[in-house]
Structure formats: C-alpha cells, structure tokens
Design a protein around this nucleic acid. Structure first.
Lengths: 350, 350
DNA sequence: TGCTGTATTTGGAACGATCCAAATTCGGAG
DNA sequence: CTCCGAATTTGGATCGTTCCAAATACAGCA
C-alpha cells in the first residue's frame, strides 16, 4: 500500500510500529524528533511513515498532553475589510507560533456571540481573541466561555464590569488621539467650523473618537454647534443620505472629522450630490486608512491603523499571556498615524 | 466551588459522576440528551454540571467516536473583500451545521498553501474548502493533505491532473457567461471598440473571463485590436497605472470590460487622471459587485457574484459530500447577474 | 567473563469521552 | 411473594497519542 493509493482506515502509530517492528513509544519519539532514538531506527521508522502515508493526530496528542494547539478568533464583522485584514494578521502570527485559528463570526449580535463562544470553547482553544459585538457585556462573555481560557479583547471594551480574577487583556486603537490629531490638522489649515460626522454614540470607539474631536476644538477655543454632530450608521450609504443634516442650519461647517473611512467616503458622495467638491469646497478626514482611502477622489486624509499589524499584535499579546498566565492584565493602546492627503484642503473662502 | 469561582483543574465527566454518585456512562448519556436516563437522575446531573461549571471536551469525544466537528477553510487572500464575505458565508453555514471553522490563509503562495494544509489536516477536519493559491497544482495539494479528506475547490481550478480516486468537488463562478453578458450589454449600447482590461492570463478565472469577452465580440463580428487587451495585477493601483496602455494606439477603445471591480475602479481613477469622465466619455464594467461598486462615481455596472451566498453554498456542497462520501464528483457553476448601472454609458461620440 | 554505565527501547497506564454487553432496579401480573 | 419484561444504570474496553518507570542492549574495562 504505497502513499498514492487511497486507504480506508486511518493509519495510526500502532500501524507504523507494527510495520517496522518497534514499539509505539519509539515511533512517538521519532515523530517528536527526540534525540533518544537510534539513528538507524529513526530512518527505518521515517521510511515506514512515508510508506503508509501517516498523518499525525494532533487531537489525540493534545488530549494526552493536556495542551491545545488552537486559538479562537471571534469577530463581530468579518465582511468589514478592517476586520478581514485583522484576521489575516492574526492567522499569520497564530500559524507562525504553530497554532491553528478557529474562526467565529457573530454578525454584531451578542446572542450569536454567546453561541459562538460556547461552541468554540468546547474545542478547547488555548486562548480567545474577541472583537465584541455591540452591546455585549462582560457577564455574558464570562457565562459563555468561563474563566479558564485567556481572552484578549480587541477594538471595543465590554459593557458591565468584569470579574477581577479573569485575566482579560485589551488591545484598542488610540481613537481619541487620532481624531484629536485630525481635528488639530484641520484647525491648522484654517478651519473654524468643523463637524463630527457619523458613528453611533453608544459604541465605545465612537465615543472616544468624538472625545478627541471635542478635546481639540475646546483646546483651540472653538465652539461646536449642535447640528455639526451628526450620527449615522458606519456605512457609505447611510453617510451619504445624512449629508444634508450638516447644512440644515447656519453656520454650516467647512470641514468634518468623520467617524471612519466608510463614512467619509459616503460623505464625499453626499457632497458631490449637493454640487460640492470634497477637497476643494469642503475638507474632511476619515479613520482606518482602508485600501480605498488613498485611491478615492480626492485621496482621503485619514488615520492609519494598520489592521494586519494589529492582528499580529493581538496574537502576540495572547501568546505572551499563554506563557505567563498570571501576569498582570495588559491594556495596550495601539498608535494611529495621520496620513495627510488632499481631502483636507484649507477652507474654500480663505 | 460555585460557577463564578475560577477553578484550577479542568472538570471532567468523572468529576460530575462522582459529584452526584452516578457512573460516567450515565453522565455521558445526559450530556447527549439520551431518552434512556430517568427524569429525576437527569435533573440531578444537570444541576451538578451547572454547579461545577463543566465544559464538554469535544476533542475527546471526537477521538472516541472517530468523528470530526470542524471544517477547514483555506483562502488565498482573506484581505480581499470578496473572500472575506465568502468566509463569513462559509462560517455561518458551517456553524449552523454544528461544525466549527478552521481558518488558514496562504497569501497567494503555493508553498505556504502546502504548509497550511499540512498543519490543518493534523487537526482532522471533516472536510476542506480550498481557494487555491495561484499556480498551485493538484499533486501539491494531494501531497499535503492526502486523499482521505473530502475537498471542495472554490473559485479556481488546480493545475495538473488530479487522481481519479480523489473526490474533489468544485464550485466556480460562471466567469465566461458573466463577461459575455457584460460585453453584449456594451455592444447593445452601441460600442464597437471594446477592450478587455486587467487580470493575469495565467489564472483560470482570468482566462475564462477573457473567453466570454472574446466570444461576445466574435459573435457580433467585432475585431479585437491587440492593444485593447491589457494585463495588470488585480488591484486598483496597478490598474490605474496601466490605463495609458489602452490609448497607446488607434483606434482607442470607447469601453472596457474589466477583470474585476478593483480593476474597474482603478481604471476609473486612471481615466480621471487623463481628464476622461468614466460613465460619460468612456464606458466600463467590473466583476464581483463589491460593496463599493454601487457607491462609486459613477456607480459601476458589474456582475454580482453574491460572495456570502457562495460561501454558504460551498459549505453546503461540502456537507453534502460528507453525507455521501462516494457520490459522483460535483462541478457546480454558480450563476452571476449583470447589474446595470451608470458606468456603462453609450459611446460619447454617438 | 563479569560488571558497570550509557544508549535505546518498551509495556502499560493515562488523557476524557463513548460504546456495548451485562447488571440492576422497578412495576405490575399471576 | 415470585417472576418477567421494560426501564435504567453501569463497568470496562477503546479511540490515538504521550508519559514514565523499568527493561534491555551495547560498549568498554578490568
């Protein structure tokens, strides 16, 4: 039975052991590259492994060794390019560390999140990376996954207060500093009437981004008109349709700090529909630096978050925790970088 | 020790059995909802499960039952929104079927693909969904994963000839019909000079899309000038920079069928840079109908592929195969739908 | 040859669940 | 009471690997 022939039964250690007349223990040692085995024996065993087309059964090994070789990744929205890039980064780092990624999507539903966590936890991952669904709470998450498995929270903090014994690390973007930089940049270009556009006030990242904007405005002694603060879903479509709200009263803003790139691109669309040229008649900034940001018309000034890099970082933080299970809880705030492009022009009237 | 207290050792069946004075077998029956156990016993056991905060060890169960509860998903490029949506669809369907998704990204490298497959196969997935990296061959894939595990190929066919005993199903888009429809549409709008823009000729999907274009042109008795066929990487950036090639000789095309949406959006950019207004001075079509297609300026005429739906479909095809391991190999060609939008205007001169 | 120390090899008991055949309990019917 | 069949429960083997203590092989040396 050579390696190109399909076999019915799965080949196990015992098959190999029997095939070259050694014990299972010896074969196991060969598989793990132990220096204990004789060179000659090793060669014979390796030949037999190839010959029978053996595949290692990691689940059985994990059971015996009481270890795990997987990391669970639970995302609120994989279809979002930001999270897709993030996932790619996580998977790369997880793979490099010899683990495998268990994926779960929650579609922004905390009910589904509980179900997904419950299902993944039964597969005994070494740790979990979770980007929580909107409105999911610490109690819910704890109930679904227990306190045994290390957790790294990404992107959002959880509602409710988490139990002190759960070692839950955190990795978030420096949202507040990001929008502060963007706002300061617009101010330095001469804008005085600056809006904050998009996002939902009940998400922690939106609150933080709004805070950065408000901070910069206040520091510059600039007043914020109520109609300059427009909420909308973080999608292009909704952003475009909310554009009118910015111009519903006077004074109209001459620039807007947008919740994220999708919103900013939608706002561009809405501006165009009103006959305004973004980057000439109206300045705006985004957040995320998604692939399209540099390719839009005009190219979008935004904050680069390097999602793939964040993915690697998240995985590495979790792996660190696995190595030191009782180390202090880490709160990591990833820097963001202002990418100045043409959308953040000076005011048209200036 | 109540459920909110962190525990050191993992709770097993035996702990529960000991805790309420029944045998392990009985607890196992309760866990699986067997009708054999007495109502009263069941209640006692369930109470104890809650009390000790038991988590099912699916790996151990799988070992004993010689089953698997995971599906591996191996993608050439997760950062691409098309595949991200696809992955979300796969994960949803896989989850609904009670399986869990094992993720692997190959970054379009067939070497990495082998490594990823080799690592995933050790976790014993019930089946694999693979969107092959460019240039990966049937022999390579077979060597990495063996012939035991059912495989569903998505999106691309493999180079080399696969062994007849491997039951490898296939799900691809109706690429050729898609571009044929797009080309016919442009012809019906009055275009005669139509280019095929973007993609690499060594990918099977690009060849199929080109074939659809050529078929429609030939059917309409239209000649194809050599400089109307421009290759470029399927990215906005490269597409934009290759725009000039279309106008390098006369007659210049008045329209282009693009390899995909990313290329089409890049071409729009390139046209703008040359002072041409896409959708007025030049018509173009894309492929994929990514989220931005309907939001671009002008909105892009393209072929809808419903990637999330394709993900569900892929998962379901694989699950079907699991149920009937020796059924005939299936080759599924998913329909695409022409979405007519403003980018496919009639010729400017007309 | 016998002895010692190092190099290799090995049986059998885990890991945490499930299967299965056999044992036990239970509620009537006779 | 006793006996029978149905309802419940159970011990022990098993899945494929690793661990561990103990067995064996092999050299070199006196």
């Amino acid at each position: 039975m050579d390696s190109t022939t399909p076999v019915r039964r799965k080949i196990t250690l015992s098959d190999i052991a029997a095939g070259c007349d050694v014990s299972r223990a010896t074969v196991s040692l060969v598989l793990r590259g132990s220096p204990l085995v004789n060179k000659h024996t090793r060669a014979r065993v390796e030949e037999e492994l190839r010959r029978q087309g053996y595949v290692y059964n990691r689940a059985a090994a994990n059971l015996r060794r009481r270890t795990s070789s997987s990391i669970a990744l639970v995302l609120n929205d994989l279809a979002n390019p930001f999270f897709a890039e993030f996932a790619a980064g996580v998977d790369a780092a997880v793979g490099d560390a010899g683990f495998v990624t268990l994926l779960g999507c929650t579609s922004e539903s905390s009910t589904r999140e509980q179900a997904v966590l419950g299902s993944l936890i039964e597969h005994g991952p070494a740790g979990i990376i979770l980007s929580p669904a909107e409105g999911s709470s610490a109690q819910q998450v704890l109930a679904a996954m227990g306190a045994q498995t290390p957790l790294l929270l990404f992107n959002r903090e959880l509602g409710g207060n988490l139990p002190e014994y759960a070692h839950w690390d955190l990795l978030i973007l420096d949202n507040q500093r990001g929008t502060r930089l963007a706002t300061e940049h617009l101010i330095s270009r001469g804008h005085r009437h600056i809006a904050f556009f998009g996002g939902h006030r009940d998400s922690s990242s939106c609150r933080q981004r709004h805070a950065g904007y408000a901070e910069a405005m206040q520091a510059a002694g600039l007043r914020i008109e109520p109609h300059w603060q427009v909420e909308c879903a973080p999608t292009r479509l909704d952003a475009a349709s909310q554009t009118a709200a910015l111009f519903a009263a006077t004074p109209a803003p001459t620039a807007a700090v947008c919740y994220n790139d999708a919103v900013a691109l939608g706002l561009m669309l809405g501006l165009n529909q009103r006959g305004l040229h973004p980057g000439r008649d109206f300045a705006l900034t985004g957040f995320d630096d998604i692939a399209e940001a540099s390719m839009s018309m005009p190219p979008l000034t935004t904050l680069s978050t390097a999602p793939r890099e964040r993915g690697r970082q998240a995985a590495e933080l979790l792996l660190l925790r696995l190595r030191e299970p009782s180390a202090d809880t880490r709160r990591t705030i990833a820097p963001v970088k202002l990418m100045v492009r043409e959308s953040s022009c000076p005011p048209h009237t200036a």
